[in-house]
Design a protein around this nucleic acid. Structure first.
Lengths: 124, 124
DNA sequence: TTCTTGATCAACCTATTGGTTGATCAAGAG
DNA sequence: CTCTTGATCAACCAATAGGTTGATCAAGAA
């Protein structure tokens, strides 16, 4: 599929991205990163799980294309990719808007029918 | 968290909803349903998997709150819940917009620095 | 009642997830 | 060189996801 940004997103990328967000720890990491880049240790601090587990979560986010990492001596700051998030909302909105427009058209149709019924009653 | 619609969405609901979208078969089902309600058999037709497997996929979507089902004799038409999709985009956008506004502020800062540097050069 | 249709239930198999512990590596600091 | 810090690799384990086959159920149709 093609997003508003013109980028092509394949099924596998969508699989990984949605799967990545289907975990409360990873969503908390995304929330934290929206406020600014952070290291694995910083990200691990609020959680009651091992640093290794958090490292794995970050790898999941990275393979999903939601975050990127740079090198700064021993540190490897994690950075949130807002554009990747936008592609997900674009996918969802595409179908949500179709469903909603269909709903609105049905709404209009029902109104038309109601008006017709009222007219009939008036004519009687 | 609370969405634009005022509805509260708990972690477990987000877990299930994102997990539900992390599968190409279920996304295809969502895409099909955006065009209108359909039965399990109709939804199963395009796929090379058993009807039972599709039935399970629909249950996953249902437990995630993304679709609802009504009763019409033996048929159980599946209906896409556009409002539930909206809650997901609301969650994503919340953090995407924070990250982007941060990015824009950094952009503005870098511009300020560049202008300052240019000014210095002019002064030399 | 019997047959057909639409759909689910139940049991099972395999691959993958999310977590652990323990070892290892890479880059500075002393 | 040795020590510390930040982070990853490797092996393992329990739970779950996605799929199958076979039986079952509920509602009309004949």
């Amino acid at each position: 599929m093609i997003t508003k940004t013109g980028r092509t997103v394949d099924q596998d990328t969508l699989d990984k991205a949605f799967m990545a967000l289907a975990d409360p720890v990873r969503r908390a990491i995304v929330a934290r990163l929206s406020r600014g880049d952070a290291t694995v240790n910083e990200l691990a601090e609020p959680f009651a799980i091992t640093k290794q587990a958090v490292s794995k979560h970050i790898q999941v986010l990275e393979h999903a294309g939601l975050v990127t990492r740079s090198r700064d001596a021993q540190r490897r700051p994690v950075h949130l990719d807002a554009a990747a998030l936008e592609e997900l909302t674009a996918w969802i909105d595409q179908y949500r808007l179709i469903a909603e427009s269909r709903f609105r058209r049905l709404d209009a149709l029902l109104e038309t029918i109601e008006n017709t019924e009222e007219k009939k009653e008036e004519e009687q």
